[in-house]
Structure formats: structure tokens, C-alpha cells
Amino acid sequence: MNKEKKGPISNELFTLLVFVILFLSVLAAFSMLNRNFFSVRNMLNILKHVSVIAIAALGLTFVIAVGHADISFYMTSCFSAMLMSWLIARGLSPLLCIAAGIAGGLVWGAFSGFVVGRYKLPDKISTIAIGSIAFGMAYLFSDGAFIYTNFTSSGITDLNNARLFGIPVPVLIMAALYLAAYVVMERSKYGRQFYSVGYNKKAAFFSGIGVDRVIVVAFVVCSAMAAVSTMITSAAQGNGNVKSGLTLLMPCFSAVYIGFAVFKKPSVIGTFLGAVFTAMIQNGFTLMSVPFYYSDMVVSGLLILAILFSRFELSSQLARRPKQQKEGR
């Protein structure tokens, strides 16, 4: 009944509306519970936190879009961060170190991509294995100890602290990556290949798409983005920590799947919304000095709710229009 009243509003718009209302109510709740929530300083903090999660989640979006799952990105990112820190300690210039870290991400991503895309090994288990190898390799650089050497003098901390036009660098990096990803995924022929592969590999193959290549690219992008994200975390913490990337798994999956729930497909904008939502909730709980485990609990609860929500939408749609459901996803 409620739905018929809305008439012209499409299902997607309705979902988006619900999301916005939910978002605003969480915002309102946090600002009532804590006066510092809306301060400029905290907003910048949230934005920085958003950018760390959002960058890694953006990469994951590509992998989810091709219909796979990557459980290695948060472990390979530890390798990249440690590689970067190790090179910093050797006294190389920060830009070079960052490039090396990204290159590390590319190599691991290519490894997973080839194993899953070319050799058709099951994605979840193989990426767990590859991620563990990468995580083991991360210990090579310092035997698991923190790397502090040269961190403050080399200028690597600028990756987190510097500002351009008053905006922190991580936020700028995030904005640039999202813009690029949006153009590629939504506005270019190349980007549609990812969705095509995700919908139906065989159909994609017979319409002339190099399925294997697309999958490899998705995994490479995922690992590289995760590497960038964890390097920002390292720069922010001012040390190279083997375990700095391990907290990424849950927020990234929940960001992508919240986006999935809102837009009914893995999308760049959806992931961004999901990342903002997740980061905001984590930040809000931290401000109220709630211990980390409760915010973990809320984030995983959120992940469950997001998917539940998308399922309810789908099932109500199924009930209303049983015959037109074929094209929908």
C-alpha cells in the first residue's frame, strides 16, 4: 500500500531515500550524544578515516563487480606498507617508496588474478593462501618489529598530514581515485566489461571480452588500492607496523555491500556511501570512547542489516511483479 502511494518513485530511488534517512538519523544521534562530533576538526578526522576505508573498498568493488571475492587484499597491503617503511628506513625518497609499495600491491594482485582468472582456482581459498604468504613475507623486512627509522625526517608523514587548499592529502587522493574509477566503471566501454563478466562469464566470453584479463585487472586494482590505503595508515601512525592493514577486512566488505544494497549492484558511488557510513559510525563510537570491539560489533551488524535490507527489497519486488523479474538482478 505504501509503495503504491509513491507511484513515480522507482525502487532504486526509494532505497536511496531510505539510506539517506538512515544516514541522517545516525548523524543526528551522534551529534546529540557528542558535542564535538560536528566540529571542523572531527569532520576532517572523519574524512581521513573515510579515505582510508574508501580507497581500499574501491579496489574491492572491482573484484566484487567481476563476481569474485578477494580475501587477500588486507594481508597483501601489510606487505606493501612494510616494503615502503623498509625503503624509507634505507633513506630513499618518499615518492619512490610509495611507488615501490604500490608495485608490491600490483605483484600480489597479479598473482591472485592469474591464479583465479587464468587458472580458475576457487577465489576465496586461493586468495586466503596468497594473502597469508604475503603476510608472512611482510615479516621479512623487520621480523615483525615496528619500523620507525627516518619516518619523521623523510617527509613520508606528509602523505597523511600535508594539506592542499586546506584539504588533507588522503582526501584528495581518495577524490581523484573515485573520480577516475567512476569514469572508468560507469562512463567507459572498458568499465562495462567488469559488470559484464560479473553477470555472466560465458556470455561475456562469447561476446568477445577477454574474461581472464578482466579478472586479473580487477584483482590488480584491488591489491594496489589496498596498498595505497595501508600506506596512508602507516604514514598517519608514523611507523611501519606489520599488522596495520589487518583492520581493513570488515569495513571494506561492509562498505561494498552497503553500496550493493543501495544500488543493487557493486558500484563506485555505492561503495563511497558505504565507506562514509561505516567510517562515520566507527568515528562516532570512538568519540564516545566506546571500546573498539563494540564498534566492530556494530559494523558487522550493519553488514548483516544492509544485505537483509536488499533481500527484503528484492523479495517484495518478486511478490509484486513475478513476471518482469527476469532482467533485474
Binding site: 571475492a69 580475501i71 576465496k124 577486512l249 570488515m250 566488505f253 561492509s254 555491500y257 571500546p291 573498539f292 570491539y293 563494540y294 566492530d296 560489533m297 559494523v299 558487522s300 551488524g301 553488514l303 548483516i304 544485505i307 537483509l308 533481500r311
Partner: peptide
């Protein structure tokens, strides 16, 4: 019942379990 992919469902459930395990002993 809700046809989650088992990967996502178990990631979420493991998050809940991990958080509960930490919460019991305050970390």
C-alpha cells in the same frame, strides 16, 4: 532464509563473534 552469499554471512558473523569475545574480557 535470506540467501546471503556464505562468504559475506560468515564474515559478518565472525565479526560479531570476535567482538563478543573481546567484549567479554574487555579486550
Amino acid at each position: 532464509r535470506f540467501q546471503f552469499p556464505s562468504l559475506i554471512a560468515t564474515i559478518a558473523v565472525s565479526g560479531l563473534a570476535k567482538a563478543l569475545a573481546s567484549a567479554i574480557g574487555k579486550g
